[in-house]
Design a protein around this nucleic acid. Structure first.
Lengths: 237, 237
DNA sequence: TCCGTTGACGAACGACGTTCGCGACGAACA
DNA sequence: TGTTCGTCGCGAACGTCGTTCGTCAACGGA
């Protein structure tokens, strides 16, 4: 059976339903309510239909969220200016930013390695830039994997940070609840209660542990990775 | 109806319920069926009770899984032999191994930053070793955060790999289904189908992208991080 | 005009996290 | 010993979840 597809049954009344529309709706719902709360029912409701209708275009929730994540990566522009390292760092930062712009959609990468077309486009460019930088082929291969882990982890961290900020900015949830939602304050609170005899180094470095806005920290981590790559020398392993 | 059923709640036999017993049961269930499938109901069943009983000792599922993850870290021994770098790499590897030993319990770290007593013990030692290595304080602070991301990501990757291996070894699920479950083969399959004109670098490096057992790859990543840290020089930023 | 194909979707199933309130027990007291 | 009372285990239930099934409507080709 060769499904030629393309033309989605345009019922006159409504239902301009299509895989793209479903995926776009899913991403929009994630933007609004977050990854976990983005249920098939809510996505369907956003399309003014029932949950069963989604399964025409999507095998299950995993696949839908995977597609939504890849859609989020569609808007990442490949950098053109600067040397290989600058372009690589810009590309990684843009990827993180684009994911973080869509709430915690990066959670989709935890369950499954992203291999959609837009993810692959970015992978291709990363590999190209790494080789341009003289990194050995084997190291390039592993570095892309490593950078993928970095991107997901940092995007999730940023999403949590944004959510906390939003909670503080929201006057409805301000005051005490916002303090509880502010995860930086919560973490520092744990450190504050530690016994200096048992955890001397944590206590000594406490101000530093929660210091530095996300962007500064993330850029530093990326610099560490690239410097570390360059330190591996010309022969891989 | 109201058939209470002859369930004379064996009084002396059990009722050894406690927070530790609940957390230990949760970890055991995760070992067996994985993080997602480790429901409150299954944990309760493992304790021969109902799900409501767990809430006496635990606020919700998140807290339970957080505690279970921390319990998994209890058995990580702090290395004593070798220089600071060797001890640091050993400690990180042991942490990853201990988490990976308990299926995908590391998923608990995705939702919440681990701050349990055993996690803090490891954090303390990591900070100590980094300072011993002459890393500037600010860099130590961020490095611990970075290493935490590394540990979670790698532990999850290893768990997926182990699961795939188990599926292949299981004669009941062998043959076709095992091939589908083998995520390395699945990833390579995606690469194999790519257009060499659109993704020249991926196609060229394809054998390398999926090469290298997890351990080798992970050790390499850790080396990259530490070398990158050392490359940051004596002044942080 | 009719038919076969196919998308849309109401209804339902089983499992989930969490809450509520009953009732059985041990301790305190008469 | 008999009675009361506070505690807490847990059965039952609520609302939500992902997913499946069977039916129906609508179109393209005959």
């Amino acid at each position: 059976m060769l499904v030629v597809a393309a033309s989605p049954r345009t019922r006159p009344a409504k239902s301009a339903l299509s895989r793209e529309a479903v995926v776009a709706a899913a991403l929009a719902v994630v933007d609004e309510v977050g990854f976990e709360a983005a249920s098939m029912r809510r996505v369907a409701a956003a399309l003014d239909t029932g949950p069963a209708s989604l399964y025409v275009y999507v095998a299950d929730r995993r696949e839908l969220m995977e597609a939504a994540q890849d859609l989020a990566l569609a808007e990442v522009e490949l950098p053109v200016a600067g040397g290989w390292r600058e372009r690589l760092e810009t590309l990684v930062a843009r990827t993180v930013a684009e994911l973080a712009r869509h709430n915690d959609i990066a959670q989709a990468a935890v369950a499954d390695v992203p291999l959609g077309p837009h993810a692959l486009r970015i992978h291709e460019e990363l590999l190209r830039l790494l080789r341009e930088g003289g990194i050995p082929d084997a190291a390039c291969a592993w570095a892309v994997d490593f950078l993928g882990q970095y991107v997901s982890a940092v995007a999730l961290e940023q999403a949590a940070w944004h959510r906390a900020q939003r909670a503080i900015a929201d006057p409805e949830k301000a005051t005490v609840e916002a303090m509880g939602a502010d995860f930086v304050a919560r973490i520092d609170g744990v450190y504050a209660g530690l016994d200096a005899a048992e955890f001397p180094t944590i206590v000594a470095l406490r101000p530093l542990l929660t210091a530095g806005g996300g962007d500064e920290r993330d850029a530093w981590k990326l610099r560490v990775i690239v410097d570390g790559l360059l330190a591996q020398g010309p022969t891989p392993g």
